[in-house]
Design a protein around this nucleic acid. Structure first.
Lengths: 415, 415
DNA sequence: CAGTGTTTTTTCGAGGCTCGAAAAAATAGA
DNA sequence: TCTATTTTTTCGAGCCTCGAAAAAACACTG
C-alpha cells in the first residue's frame, strides 16, 4: 500500500528534481532551474550548493548567449563528468558491444566483439559478457570505483524487475540472470533491459518534442519488437518486459512463427518472414536463423524495381503490421510511431499496405494523422537508451538516495 | 514536466493518505493508520485531530473485537457520513439509473428509469439525464449543498479527461460533453467515465485480495468491453478511455461488427454475434439492435442441451475471446480476469474454446494458471465503481486540496 | 477496590525544509 | 565612476514530521 511522505523525502525528491533538470537542460542557471521545477530560488540555491559541494554538479560558463543581457550574468550548472561513470552492455545477434560513459554522458571507453550467440553454451555466453566487462574495467583510463551502474540490453524478454533475460531469439539459452551475475562478479549494481524499451528511452532523450508522453518504437528486424511509452512512462508487462507486439496474433492458425506458434505478426513482418514470402516458400517453412542486412536490402531493391513476390512479401508485412497496430490502437489510441531497424529502410514498401490495414481497424479513424518516422540503425539507439537509463539511476538512487531502502543496491556505490 | 514538491504539499498528501486508509480499512484506530501509512503516531494524531475538527472523520466504537485486549482500547476512526455526498448516473441501453450516496458509501436516494436510448434525440437524452439528477437533488432527504461530485458512466468511449462521451452503442448521438453539461447546470463537479473502467474500480474495492495491482474486467454483453488495471492504476488510452478490447482484430476482413468494421473480437463474441451464429446467419448479416437477456439465457440453455449451431456459436465466441486475450497478454502478460455480464453466465460454454485459443498464443505459456471469475450482473458493479470514484475524488480534491495537482497524486487514475 | 501492567493517544520540544524578502554580487550602459 | 538590472545568497518565519515522554483508558490481580 502506498506510504506516507516523510519529511526527509522532501529534500531527496527535490534534489532528484534539480539533477534531472540539469540533465535535461544541459547547462541551466539556477534561475532557470527554479523556473522549470517551480521551487523557490532559495531552495535551488541551497540544493545546488550542496550538489556542487558533493562534486555532483559543477559551475561552468553561462549558457551560451548569456553575455548579451544586462545584469549579473547567469552561471550555468552542469553535470560533473567525473562524478560517476556507467557501463552499457548490448547483446544482440552475434554481437556484443560495451561502452563506459561518464556522468555527463560522454563515451570514455568502448569495445565491440563478434560472437556466435546462436550456438554458444550458456557458460560461454555468460563468460564472454563477464570478460568484456572486466576488460573495460581494467582500462587504465577508467577509475573502477567510479563505475556506479551497468545496464545490459538484450533482444528478447526480460523480467519486470530487470534482473534476468527470460527468453531471447539470439540464443537457445533461457533464464539467465545477467544482472545478478554481473553484480555478484563486480559488486556494481546492474539491470537487464529489453532492447526495444531502451530504443524508446533513447528516442525520448533525442527528440523530446516528438517523443514525449505517448509514442511507440517498433523494431523491424529479424524479429519484431516494441518499446512503448504511455503517459510519459515506459510500459512493461506485469511479469516480463512485455509489449511483445510481434507476437500479437494476426491470423489465427496462420504462418509459422519463430516462437513456434502460428499467425503472429512477426511471422509475416519479421525479416525471415519477408524473406520466406519473397522466395514463395510455404508459410509452414521453418524460419531461417538469420538473414543478413545486405540480403534484406537486396530484397527491398528488387521489390522497388518490379512487381513480384518480393513486393508482395513487403505488402503482407505491411498488412500484418497494420492490423497489429490497429489492435494496439484499439487499446491505447493512436500515437506517433518510430520504425527502427533494417526494414525501416524499406518502409516505403511497407507503408501503403500498413495504412490500408490500419484504416480497416478501430484505430483507423484518423489513420491519416498517424505519423511514422524511420531510423534504420537500432544499435546506437539501444546503447544511448542504456546509457541514459543507467545515468538516470545514478541521478535518482545514488545522488538522491532515499530513506526507504527497498534496494540494498541503492546505497552501495556512493561516489 | 514534473514539478518540485512544496512544503505544504506534504501535509496535503499525508492528509489524503489518512483519509484513504480510513476508507479502505473501515474503522481503523490511529495506531493502525500509523502502521499502514508508515507515518509516526504523532503525525497521525495531529492529522486525524484536524480531520475530526473539520467533520470529515468521526470517532466511533473500537473496531469490533477490540474489547478483548489489555490496555487502553483503540478508538476507531470512521468516515463521517454527513461530511459530503456524491451522485452516480449510469446510462446503459434503454436504462438510466441514478443514486445519491453519503460520504461513508451508503445509498441514501435512488431512481431508475426506462428510456428508448436508441431512438432518442440528443436533446431528449441530455434532458432526461438533467431531469433525473434534478429530481434527486430535490429529494427532501438530500442536502443539495453536500453533493460534492457527480460521476456518470456510459457504455462506450469517453475522453481521457473524463468530460465527454465520444461514442456509444446505446445511442446514435456522439460527442456529448455530459460532464460539462451537468457542471454547468448544477454547479457540481462531474466526470464522464467508461462503464467497464468503473467495473474494474468496483472489483478492486470489492475484492482487493484478488483484484489489486493487475487485472482485467471484461464485459460480455451486447458489445464487448474491458476495464484494465495495471500496476494499481486504471489503464486508459492516450486520447480516449481506450482499452477497446472488443475491437481488437480477431480475423482481418472477417465477420461484420456493430462498429461497421470487420473481424473485431466483438463480431464473434458480442451477444448479437453469438445470436447471429446460433441462427446460422451469414457473418455479413447486419447486427441486430438488441438481444434480450432472456433470449441469451435460452440460447445458452439450448447450447448446453445439445450439440448444434448454438454450441458452435459459443465456441466461436470463446475462440475470438481467447485469441484476443492472447494478443493482449502478449502486451501486458497474463493477469486475473473477471468476466462480467449476461454471457458470463454462459462462461462454461465459452471457456473450453477460449483456453484452447489462448494456448495457441504467446500468453499461453501458463494458460492453465490464468484464472477466470464470473459475475453475471454488471449494473451493480458499474454503480459501485462510480460511487467509489466520486468518493475518492472528494477524498483527494476536496478534503485534501492542494496547489496544482497536475504532477501529484491528484489527477492520477488510482483505481 | 486499589494497585499494577499494558496499550493507545496526546503533548512537547528538536530538527529540517521551503519560502519570501532583503541583501549581496556581478555585470552593461551612461 | 555611477546607476540600473539581473542573478544569487542570506536570514528569519512558518510548517511539518519525528522521537520521547507523558497522559489516558482500560484489564487483570490479589
Amino acid at each position: 500500500m502506498s506510504v506516507g511522505i516523510r519529511h526527509d523525502d522532501l529534500r531527496r525528491r527535490n534534489r532528484a528534481m534539480v539533477i534531472a533538470a540539469v540533465r535535461r537542460a544541459g547547462r541551466p542557471s539556477r534561475t532557470e532551474i527554479a523556473a522549470t521545477t517551480g521551487l523557490s530560488h532559495s531552495t535551488i540555491s541551497a540544493i545546488s550548493s550542496d550538489l556542487i559541494g558533493e562534486g555532483i554538479l559543477a559551475e561552468g560558463k553561462p549558457s551560451e548567449a548569456g553575455s548579451l543581457k544586462r545584469g549579473r550574468p547567469q552561471v550555468g550548472l552542469g553535470l560533473n563528468p567525473e562524478a560517476a561513470a556507467v557501463m552499457t552492455v548490448v547483446l544482440s545477434l552475434n554481437f556484443l558491444s560495451v561502452a563506459v560513459i561518464d556522468y555527463a554522458g560522454q563515451v570514455i571507453s568502448e569495445e565491440q566483439r563478434r560472437l556466435d550467440t546462436l550456438t554458444m553454451s550458456r557458460e560461454a555466453l555468460i563468460g564472454e559478457c563477464v570478460a568484456i566487462v572486466r576488460r573495460r574495467l581494467e582500462d587504465p583510463d577508467i577509475d573502477v570505483r567510479s563505475v556506479a551502474r551497468i545496464a545490459l540490453a538484450i533482444q528478447g524478454i526480460t523480467d519486470t524487475e530487470a534482473r534476468a533475460m527470460l527468453w531471447s531469439p539470439i540464443t537457445p539459452q533461457t533464464d539467465i540472470a545477467f544482472a545478478d551475475i554481473l553484480e555478484a562478479e563486480f559488486g556494481i549494481p546492474a539491470t537487464m533491459e529489453n532492447d526495444c524499451n531502451m530504443m524508446a528511452v533513447a528516442l525520448r532523450w533525442r527528440d523530446p518534442e516528438r517523443y514525449r508522453d505517448d509514442f511507440i518504437a517498433i523494431l523491424l528486424s529479424h524479429g519484431i519488437g516494441m518499446g512503448l511509452v504511455l503517459k510519459g512512462e515506459l510500459f512493461t508487462g506485469t511479469h516480463s518486459s512485455g509489449g511483445e507486439f510481434g507476437h500479437m496474433i494476426h491470423r489465427p492458425g496462420g504462418a509459422l512463427c519463430r516462437c513456434g506458434r502460428r499467425g503472429c505478426v512477426e511471422a509475416y513482418a519479421g525479416n525471415y518472414a519477408i524473406w520466406r514470402n519473397a522466395r514463395q516458400l510455404s508459410e509452414d517453412t521453418e524460419p531461417v536463423a538469420d538473414v543478413s542486412d545486405a540480403q534484406m536490402r537486396a530484397l527491398a531493391a528488387t521489390a522497388r524495381e518490379r512487381d513480384g513476390p518480393e513486393r508482395e512479401a513487403y505488402r503482407k508485412a505491411g498488412e500484418a503490421l497494420g492490423y497489429g497496430l490497429g489492435s494496439l490502437f484499439a487499446l491505447i489510441d493512436p500515437a506517433p510511431v518510430a520504425m527502427v531497424g533494417v526494414s525501416a529502410a524499406a518502409f516505403d514498401l511497407i507503408e501503403p499496405a500498413l495504412r490500408e490495414a490500419i484504416a480497416q481497424t478501430a484505430g483507423g479513424h484518423h489513420s491519416k494523422s498517424i505519423s511514422f518516422d524511420t531510423e534504420p540503425n537500432e544499435l546506437p539507439l539501444i546503447r544511448e537508451g542504456c546509457a541514459m537509463r543507467a545515468l538516470t539511476f545514478v541521478d535518482q538512487e545514488i545522488f538522491a538516495p532515499g530513506v526507504q531502502g527497498k534496494s540494498g543496491v541503492a546505497g552501495k556505490n556512493v561516489a
